[in-house]
Each structure stands twice: as C-alpha cells, then as structure tokens.
Design a binder for these strands. Structure first.
Lengths: 224, 224
DNA sequence: CCAAAAGTGTTGGTTTTACACCCATGG
DNA sequence: CCATGGGTGTAAAACCAACACTTTTGG
C-alpha cells in the first residue's frame, strides 16, 4: 500500500420528518465489526466514482429514492476509527421530504427510522457524525431554504412551522413565523386548500425557486 | 487496489494579512503534473496519521509555524481531478496572524504570498478550493471570532476593522464597527497604547476567550 | 499650527419579540 | 353549538445604517 492509500467510504445521515418529529435512518449491521449494532447507511466509494456519486448511489440503494437534497458534511479520518484498518469516512447529509415513499426494505428489522434526537448507540464514530449533521441542519435551516426539502411540494404554513420546530427543538410563535416567512417572498400561495380533519382548511403554498437568487443577494443563503 | 482504495492528500489554504490585504500562500510545483504552476501547499496523508495531523504537519513543513487556527474545509473527490490517478483532496484552511514570522523559504521563488482575491492560475482544482475557502472565511468572519486569528494578540480597533474590510472586500463605518464589536464584550481593553506614527496613539485590545461561551449561548458562534 | 489617525452620539428606519382573539369547517 | 386548527395586528424594544466633528500626538 503506497503512502496515503486508504479506503474511502461515504456515510449518509438521512433525515426525514415523521409525525412532526425529525428522524434519521439507521441500518443494523449484519457483519462484524459492530455486528448487530446500528449504524449510518454507507459504503465504499467505487473506483471511478466521485464522492457525490457514491453518496447518491448509497442513498438510492438504501431508500430507493433519487433526486433528493444531499450535501457533503465533513471527513472523518482518525486512523483508528475502523478496527478493520484505515477507512476514511466522507459524511453526507440528505433530506427526504415526508411524502416520499421509500423502497420496501426501509423500515424493517434491519433498517429503521429513529428520532434524530433520541438515537441508539451507534457503530464506529457515527454518533459524532450524527451530532455534526444535526448542528449543520439547525444552522442551515435558519439561513437557507433547506427546510423545504423536508416537506412535500405543496404544504401549509403550519406544516412548515412544524419542520422548523422539529429541527430547532423549540416552539415558535405562529404569527411571527408567518410574518417572517412571507416577508422573504419565497413562497407562492396556491388557490388550493387542504382539508385535514374537522377544522378550517389551510391554504397550500409552494416554494418558489425563482426567487432563490433574491435571497442569495441578501446574504441569506448559506453557501456550504 | 481494493474497492475504494485511493490516495488521500491534504491541501491547505493558508491566509494571512499583509499590509491590510488578505494573502494566500502558494507553492510553485517543481515536478509534473502542473510543473512550474502555482498550487496550494499540501501533501499526502501518512499511514497512521489523522487528517488534522497531516494538515498540521504540512502547515509546519511549509511555514515553520504550529499552533495556528486550522479547520477542515471540504473534500474534493472527482476521480479525474489529478492526472496521476485517483487522489482525494481533503482541504483545510488556516489563518496566520500577521505578526508571525515564517520560516525562511517561505516567500521565495517557489513559495509566495499572493493577494487572495488576485491569485494566479492554479494547478489541479485548486482554484475551486481557494474560492471555497474565501466564501467560508467571509461567513465565519461575520459569525464567529476567527477574525482575531489574523491579528497579533494585542491589536487596535482600527487594525481589527482592517481585517474585516480586507476579508469582506468593502469599507465599514468606523463608529458602527466599534459599537458592534464592543457590544459583544469579547474584547479586553488594555492600558497600553500603540504609537504608530505621528498621530494620536491607539488603545490596544486583546481577544478575551473567557467570554467565548457567552457568544455561543447567543448563537453567535458558527459551529463549523 | 499642521497632518494624521483616534475617538465619539444621534436619528430614523427596520426588525424582532411578546402577546390574544375571531374564523371556517365537520360532526 | 362544539372542538379543532387556521388565520390575523399592534406596541415596545432592540438593532442597524447613515452621517461629521473633536482629540491627541509628533514634527
């Protein structure tokens, strides 16, 4: 093995919202090391594959979805992080909108959604990776538009507020939240409403990507 | 070569301030590929070395300094980014305080400081790395205390303002800047003054790390 | 007394926070 | 008519941006 030659894996922190709670997808390892322990989904980077491509491929393999929000997080390179030998982990985080239906095989005994703020012990240094992803997600939520990635295309303002609350872990004032979001002018109010039970139907909105650049100009998009 | 085995390099964007202008250290490559072209300092990660340790080692080799601000930036893994074969680049950025004296050998024909916003063509994908580092530095400057890393321990408010102006690339209002910085309560005013020419001597300040946690609590420290 | 940079306050506009009630709907 | 979540405004405080003159020093 020549100088600097190591194996490179991608590990993905896949977030979604279920019943208003932020969840993360974990896989139960079938082989040592850490057999039967929960771990982040991931795998080795192939020969001629970019890191992003490897992350997308793993994501597709685990969940059956493509075309999702995916962003590189951090690279973990402690020589002892994997007992099998030197494995570099390039971590990513992904956001799945809650409407997405995942391949069967997700959410079985060996692949389950866990509340992100209440995950079990994890293999390797995956706890560190998860914590890092949570920090990043919280910050990006407030400074970028990633929040929308956790929702279906059409959503109500209350649903959007629930996303913010689930990620930030605190309650927000309904009036202030709405004022702030609407002032950004990044939502398109639709003529549709959603009947969601016995109460007054809520207006639906869409994220309006055409004004994305507006925000960038105002320094509101965080370029990481 | 087993699946996923690649060589791993660290490349470091080393910033400093010279005469009020943000500079970056570049190395002229002595061997192919890109012989005689300017490139970011860097090198391969050793067998049993963490990524951070590799970056620190390279930094020390190039500049002779240790104990500097260093932070991982991003990992670039395009399979074609290095014509010699697959080389993953873990990029870092470092901030050197302007008082630091560097090893001789820095700032020679083969290692030179260039204005960061006016660097020559770079080898590999190093231009992308540099651009990324500049974006990151600008953001961190406004949301964290990294700005102090570019200054000596004791500095005047005007010097601090020059750092902000050099990085952000725009003029700031002296009164507003001072008010804002002082309100953070992260500076300790010293009893010393600096005589810097014919004019009125300026009060010296130190960064007061003991109040760092205050800022964190107020969400003012950006955790990347 | 001149040149040079240090130092210092006010005002108007915008943003943020805290806070409570009526509305539309289905059962 | 009741239960449920949808929807709306206002006032006080904090924050931000624009703006100009006096002070201290050395020569």
């Amino acid at each position: 093995m020549s100088r600097g030659a190591v194996r490179v894996a991608v590990d993905i922190v896949i977030f979604t919202l279920r019943e208003g709670v932020l969840h993360v997808l974990l896989i139960r390892r079938g082989v040592p090391p850490f057999k039967d322990k929960w771990a982040l989904p991931g795998g080795f980077v192939e020969e001629a594959e970019s890191l992003d491509a490897a992350a997308l491929r793993e994501l597709e393999e685990e969940t059956g979805v493509s075309d999702v929000y995916l962003e590189q997080l951090y690279s973990f390179g402690d020589p002892k992080r994997d007992p099998r030998g030197r494995v570099l982990s390039i971590s990513y985080f992904a956001l799945l909108s809650s409407e997405r239906e995942l391949r069967s095989g997700t959410d079985t005994a060996d692949a389950r959604w866990f509340p992100a703020y209440d995950a079990p012990r994890l293999a390797f240094d995956h706890r560190k990776i998860l914590d890092y992803a949570l920090v990043r997600l919280r910050y990006k939520l407030e400074w970028t538009t990633v929040g929308f990635e956790l929702l279906p295309k059409k959503f109500t303002l209350t649903e959007l507020q629930r996303v913010f609350e689930a990620v930030l872990g605190r309650q927000l004032d309904k009036r202030n939240f709405r004022r702030k979001i609407l002032k950004l002018e990044i939502l398109r109010a639709l003529d549709e409403r959603r009947r969601a039970g016995v109460q007054r139907p809520a207006r639906l909105y869409m994220f309006s990507a055409t004004v994305f650049e507006k925000l960038r100009g105002r320094g509101m998009i965080f370029p990481f």
